[in-house]
Structure formats: C-alpha cells, structure tokens
C-alpha cells in the first residue's frame, strides 16, 4: 500500500481552518453590498470555485501533455485527479451562479457566454470520464484520456468566442466595468481583501483535494495490479 504522507494531514487541518476563516470573513468582515443585498456574498466563493475549476482543467492539460511525452502513469493519475476536482468545483460555480442570477437577473439561467461555456466544459469533462470508463487497458486508457484532455481544452476558448459574438450580461468585476452588464459593483477594500483571501484559501484546498485524489488513484492502480497478478 502506498506509504502514508506526514505532510498531508497537516495540510488537511490547514485547509479546514482556512476555509472556516474565509467563511467567517465573508459573513462578518466583508460589508453587505447595497444594491444586491446579502446574495452578493456568494460572489467570493463563486469566483473562487470557478478559479479552482480552471486550475483543475489547466493542470489536467499540462499533465495530459506530459503523459504523451513521457508515458509515465504518474501523469495520468494527476490528470484524472485534476479533472475530477475541476468538475466538482465548476459544478459548484454553475449552481451557485444560477442561485445568484435569480434575484439579480430575474432568471435562473441565461445562455450567456460564461454560463454556456461552463456548461459545455462540464460536458467535455463528463465525456472524458465516460471515455475512461469505456477502456479497460490502462496504458491505452491513459493515452486516449490525455489526447481528449488536449482536444477538449482547445475547444473551450473557441466555444466562449462563438457565444461571445452575441452580447453578454455577465458582470466583469475584475478589470473593466462593462456598463451593459447587470449585477456589477465596485469592490470596497474589505471586499477585495475577502475576495483575495477566498482565492488563496481555495487554491490551498485545491492542492489538498488533488493530493488526496492522486493517492486514491495510486491505490486503485495498486489494487488493479494485485488483481491482475492473482488472476494469472
């Protein structure tokens, strides 16, 4: 069995404390936004989740390329772990965004570039999981999965662009203030601090989760090999 890590439990506790601290900051430190009311507070974790999702898919892309270059199964485990964590956090982003949109946009859903792209991304990576499930040979599974990660990742910006040619109503809080967007607001220093801290906390959480998932993948491979050895 893969050896237990001594750093990982420490990271678990750090992540837990950080998440609690960030939650506390969101509710008790950041001021309430005047136009939108309390619902604006989901913004901090909404964007942080989206960040983790993108981080996951980015890591998966790098791992996919690395796998094709080296054929080292380690990269395949990292890729799968990153995709899975990415899917979970992108799902959180989509659902929470939809809950925010109801009072602000007066609808649960709209086919805006960001929303649509996020949905298509979930579908790409759901297809990725189905591809893996359909192939038994581990080496071939890893190879195909890496190829599909690369293709899927390339299609995402093109999907975004294709829908961007229409007008968008999604707010861009960081960077430019597009006046046509609904639900934009100016961040006060306290809001900015809370936001930055949430991003940091979720990044730490990402490392912790992906680490756990990689260990799980490694254990699954060990069990698989053991089964194979016994069946011979």
């Amino acid at each position: 069995m893969p050896a237990k890590s001594r750093v990982l439990p420490v990271l678990d506790w750090i992540s837990l404390v950080l998440v609690l601290a960030a939650t506390g900051m969101v509710f008790f430190y950041a001021p309430t936004e005047e136009v939108m009311g309390l619902v604006q507070k989901v913004f901090y974790f909404h964007v942080a989740s989206a960040w983790v999702g993108m981080l996951g898919f980015g890591v998966a892309l790098v791992a996919g390329i690395a796998y094709l270059r080296t054929a080292n199964p380690k990269w395949d485990q990292i890729e799968l772990a990153a995709v899975e964590v990415g899917i979970v956090y992108l799902l959180i982003t989509i659902i929470v965004g939809s809950i925010w949109a109801k009072p602000i946009w007066n609808t649960w859903w709209t086919w805006d570039p960001r929303l649509t792209t996020a949905t298509v991304m979930e579908l790409v990576y759901a297809a990725y999981l189905m591809l893996r499930a359909g192939i038994e040979d581990t080496e071939r599974r890893a190879r195909f999965a890496a190829v599909y990660t690369i293709l899927g990742f390339i299609s995402v910006p093109l999907t975004f662009l294709s829908i961007r040619i229409f007008r968008t109503i999604h707010p861009v809080v960081i960077g430019s203030g597009d006046p046509t967007a609904t639900g934009t607001f100016a961040m006060t220093p306290k809001m900015l601090q809370t936001f930055m801290f949430s991003l940091f906390v979720f990044s730490v959480l990402f490392v912790d989760l992906i680490w756990h998932r990689i260990r799980l993948g490694r254990l699954a491979d060990t069990v698989e090999q053991l089964k194979l050895r016994l069946s011979q």
Partner: peptide, 18 residues
C-alpha cells in the same frame, strides 16, 4: 473502446460545438 457505439457522439459533440 468497449462502449464504442455510444461513445462517439458523446466525445464529439461537446468538442464541435464552436
């Protein structure tokens, strides 16, 4: 793949959306 008949549209459609 083992699931080859159903797999192609699932893999293909999200990628060809643009």
């Amino acid at each position: 793949a083992r699931t080859r008949d159903i797999l192609l549209p699932i893999l293909l459609f999200p990628v060809v959306i643009p």
